[in-house]
């Protein structure tokens, strides 16, 4: 089965989101490298996102495009990145999600991907 692992954390929490050039960030990146190595080709794709101040919300109303500043929801934790993984079942997906460094500093939401095939 295919799952999306949506990685949420508090952008103002400097433990989860330290300065990009800091030692702490290096440690986190090493964690992601380790995850990538362990999960191997079970990772089908994924990206890290720029923080929410860079976000723009787009809505179309009566054919008019309305673009507004900011993320969709005012919550404490925001989507910071995602993976698409292949796992035999939810237990394997949970085990993989638990290896994502931000699972220990935020939340990883695991969602099955719809199979249109």
């Amino acid at each position: 089965m295919k799952y999306a692992c949506l990685i949420y954390s508090d952008e103002n929490d400097t433990t989860a989101n330290p300065d990009p050039l800091s030692k702490e960030m290096e440690t986190i990146m090493a964690g992601y490298m380790a995850f990538g190595g362990a999960a191997g080709d079970k990772i089908l794709g994924g990206e890290a996102l720029q923080p929410t101040p860079t976000a723009t919300c787009v809505r179309v109303s009566d054919g008019e495009v309305i673009a507004t500043d900011g993320p969709f929801a005012e919550t404490k934790e925001h989507l910071g990145g995602f993976y698409i993984i292949e796992a035999a079942d939810l237990d394997e997906a949970i085990a993989m999600a638990a290896m994502i460094p931000h699972a220990a500093m935020g939340t990883v939401e695991v969602r099955p991907v719809i199979d249109f095939g």
């Binding site: 089965m1 799952y3 035999a88 079942d89 939810l90 237990d91 997906a93 695991v110 099955p112």
Partner: peptide, 14 residues
Amino acid sequence: AAAGIPFKIPPDHE
């Protein structure tokens, strides 16, 4: 069914 919760006996460590 949709999330793939398995019908299986968990591995020893779980």
